[in-house]
Structure formats: C-alpha cells, structure tokens
C-alpha cells in the first residue's frame, strides 16, 4: 500500500465500497429471486433492492417521541461502517493490502456490531415489540457467536496464523479447509445464517410474532441503511466463508500473467460467494422459524459441541500431520 491513489481506488471503488454496494444489492436480489423461483413464482426484477433502497432514502423520517434522535440517526451508520470496514480485510482479488496478523478477529468483531446496534435500536425505540426483538437478537447473539467463532478459529489453528490472507495462502499450498474441516464449514454456514437473522433464525424480527422486531420503528433513511447493512453483511459473511473455507481468490496452481490471476481470482470469488448464497437461500426456503428456547437447546447442545469436536479434531490433526 505504497501508492495512495491506488489505495483509495481499492477502498472506494474496486473492490471497495462502490463494488460492495452494488454486489450487496445484487446478492439481495438473487436471494429473493432464488427463493421466489423455488416457490414457483417469478420474483422481483433485478433492480428491486436498488429501487427499495432509493425509495426508502426518499421517505419521510419519523422520530418516535422520546427517542434520542442523534443515536437513532447514528446507530445504523455505525453498523454500516463496521461491516464495510470488515470487508476491507477480506481478500477479494489477491490478498488484501490491509491484511495484518489478527485481522480475522477484527473482522469477526466488526461483524457482530450490527447485532449490537439492532439491540440498541430496539431498546431505544420505546416500543414493546422492538424491545422484545432487541432482547431476542442479543440472546441469539450469545447462542450462535461461540460456535461461529470456534468454527472460524479452527482453520486459523491449523494454518497457524490469525490473518485471513495467510489462511488463504496456506490453503493454496495444501488443501481447502472445507475438505479438511467439513464440520466446521457446516457450523460456520449455520452461524452465518443466524448472524444474518434469516429463516430459521429470524427470531428477532419474527413478523408474525413481534411485527418487525427492532426494525418496527425505523423509517426512511434509517431503514434504508439498516437494510443495506444486512445486505453488506451477507457479502462480507459469504466472502469470509469463501476465503477461510473455500480457498478465497487464489488457485492451487500458479497463473502466469499477473492480471489474469487477478481476473480469475475475482471470478473465483464471485463463484464461491454465489455458492454460499445458494446454500443459505435453500436453507431459508426449506425451513420455518424455530423458537428461541429451541434455538438455545439446539445451539448449545449440538452446534456448540460440534464446533468443539472440530477444534479437538484439528488439534489432533495438527499434532499428527501439520507439525509432524
């Protein structure tokens, strides 16, 4: 990152924020379209999330009485900023220029910020549905966060590094982690589904129970930005899983011209995120919502123990194979 101009282009345009914005909206469209087609419907046109976003920006903003307006305005922006920052550390085309030792932890931390923001919004809305939704979202955070962290930690354990880019390089040399750690991969997918609050884990915003949970009182640009945050989190989450488990943008063999490597890497990134999207959309379509107490049972009994088993397996594998 020596050249400031190319650094700015990397952050702002490609593969930075502009691309991220468009790709997030595209994935949101694709998610809705796949769900619609699985239900034998036509589904929305491709510009739909964009139109929704623009329309919401143009709507009136209503301040619920007794709400701290500054926090209500600022909180969605904080959430959006957090996930957008997290995106910069994930390798998209080649390695991220901002990579450093420990960026995996930073990304995971930044990705849980939207949930905290949702809780804050729900709590501040002074609406009983929002408050219940906020409490539910934090309860859910406690349940899925541990297995999700453990599942994403195991590749780091095996690769012996806390940098996502170096985990990708390790996979280029050896093997994709999805083959080495299938249990961790599944746990990570379930954790991501829960993090994005999609069915069957859409407990905090359960429409038929608590209207829209923390979202109930959001209007206008606040709603637009929170919506965008969820879409961006989708891209970040799937990119993270693609990088950590599916080998990221790097190929197992070397591609000679540097520009070709970049292009191929970019398309690999697209293909892998789309694969993650297809899996997550199928889960969303094929299931109903579970209850928070059932999630508590399932989460701590099965998912958490599966991730702990995965950690144990990795420790044994490390002892026998990697460091042998």
């Amino acid at each position: 990152m020596t050249d400031p101009v190319s650094g700015l282009i990397y952050i702002l345009i490609f593969p930075g924020f502009l691309f991220l914005f468009l790709y997030a909206l595209f994935l949101a469209f694709l998610d809705r379209k796949i769900a619609a087609r699985m239900q034998q419907r036509v589904g929305p046109p491709f510009f739909q999330p964009f139109a929704d976003f623009i329309k919401m920006l143009g709507k009136e903003v209503i301040d619920p009485a007794g709400v701290d307006r500054v926090i209500f305005d600022a909180a969605p922006l904080v959430a959006l900023a957090a996930v957008m920052t997290a995106y910069l550390y994930i390798p998209i085309v080649g390695n991220s220029p901002l990579a450093f030792q420990g960026d995996l932890v930073v990304v995971l931390y930044l990705m849980s910020l939207p949930t905290i923001v949702l809780f804050l919004l729900g709590w501040l809305s002074r609406n009983i549905f929002s408050a219940i939704g906020g409490i539910r979202s934090v309860t859910q955070l406690f349940i899925y966060e541990v297995p999700f962290f453990l599942a994403l930690m195991t590749p780091a354990l095996m690769a012996g590094t806390w940098s996502i880019s170096e985990i990708v390089i390790w996979q280029q040399k050896n093997m994709w982690f999805v083959f080495l750690q299938p249990i961790g991969f599944i746990v990570a997918l379930i954790g991501l589904q829960a993090k994005l609050e999609r069915t069957p884990f859409d407990i905090p915003e359960a429409e038929t129970e608590i209207v829209a949970g923390p979202w109930t009182e959001l209007t206008g640009r606040r709603l637009a930005i929170m919506d965008l945050t969820v879409d961006v989190s989708f891209v970040v989450g799937s990119a993270l899983i693609a990088a950590v488990f599916l080998g990221g943008p790097l190929m197992p063999w070397a591609v000679t011209p540097a520009w070709l490597a970049v292009v191929v890497g970019f398309f690999l990134f697209l293909a892998k995120t789309l694969a993650v999207l297809l899996i997550l959309s199928s889960i969303k379509v094929a299931t109903g919502r579970i209850r928070i107490d059932q999630l508590n049972d399932i989460g701590w009994k099965y998912i958490a123990s599966a991730s702990i088993v995965q950690v144990g397996i990795v420790l044994v594998m490390n002892y026998l194979w990697v460091y042998a």
Partner: peptide
C-alpha cells in the same frame, strides 16, 4: 412481488 410489492407488517 414482480412489481416490487411487499406486504409489510409495520
């Protein structure tokens, strides 16, 4: 939904 309509609870 092909016209972009969604039914919203809130």
């Amino acid at each position: 939904e092909r016209f972009g309509m969604l039914v919203k609870g809130s």
